[in-house]
Amino acid sequence: MPDAATHPDVKRGFLRSSVARAGSGLTSLVAWLDSMGVSRRVLFIALVIVLGLVFMGSLTKRLLFVLLFLFLSSISMIYNRSINVSLGFEFVTFGTIMCGIVYGPGTAIFVGLIGIFLAEYVGGRMQPHTIISFIGMGFIGFIAHFFAGMDIRLAGILLVIIYDAIICPLYLIYGSEPARVALYMVTHWIFNFWLFIAVSRFVAGVMG
């Protein structure tokens, strides 16, 4: 049979009793540390240090992933030094979207814009029309966190499509050859769809 409902007064009494026991235990701990010659100032400093380490642990993880994505972005288009074709094999898009979903728009925009700059610079393809990619990646970095409640694989694929829907027409207007734009879009979809389907959930779990 189902358990009988607990009376609200009983719940409140249990809560007060638990808080009182916790407070008594904390007071006893502080008194014991005082008797051992540990001042309350030292306790306060220790508490601040512990909280700082916890907070810095989160920041450290974020910093490490930002640096990792920037490194991958910087080397992912180095093939452009050898071939005069823009392919979609790069880590800027993946890193930007992952950071946007997990860490928010500020980190994502930073990773996206710096990632494109490094990728184009290292690949030797920095050109005036690269501003189109900056605009598209900045926009994707900004909106990615709105997709945070969705399955990250589907969210990533949709954001890749949105990104290409922004930049590809602009590159065509700028004068890029349709065949080159189509080749970029197809390879970009293949590579990033695979990334999001294969590893995005694992990466998000480690990042969070």
Score class of each variant (00 low, 15 high):
R125N: 13
G57W: 08
V85L: 15
M36R: 15
T60R: 01
A31M: 12
V111R: 11
T130W: 00
V54D: 00
S28V: 10
M137R: 10
M98W: 02
Y103A: 09
A144V: 00
C99Y: 03
V102S: 05
S74G: 09
G25I: 08
V50K: 10
R62T: 10
D34F: 08
G100W: 03
G95A: 05
F71R: 02
G136I: 12
L59P: 00
M150R: 11
S28K: 14
G23V: 11
A155V: 02
G100H: 04
N84E: 09
L64I: 14
F65N: 06
G52L: 02
G141C: 09
S82M: 07
A31C: 01
I167R: 00
F142N: 01
I167A: 08
L51K: 05
K61Q: 11
I116M: 09
N84W: 12
I75G: 07
L68G: 05
G57I: 09
I83A: 09
Q127C: 02
A22I: 15
V66Q: 03
G104W: 01
F139M: 11
V50F: 04
S58A: 05
T96H: 07
F69C: 10
L59S: 09
I45Y: 11
I131Q: 02
I167L: 07
V111S: 09
L72S: 03
G88Q: 05
F147H: 07
A46Q: 04
C99W: 01
T93A: 14
A148Q: 11
G149L: 12
T96M: 12
F89L: 14
F89R: 05
L29D: 06
W32N: 10
I132K: 13
M36Q: 15
F94A: 08
R40I: 02
T60Y: 13
G112A: 08
G115N: 09
A108L: 06
L51N: 08
A22K: 13
S76A: 12
E120N: 12
F91Q: 08
N84R: 15
I143R: 09
G25C: 03
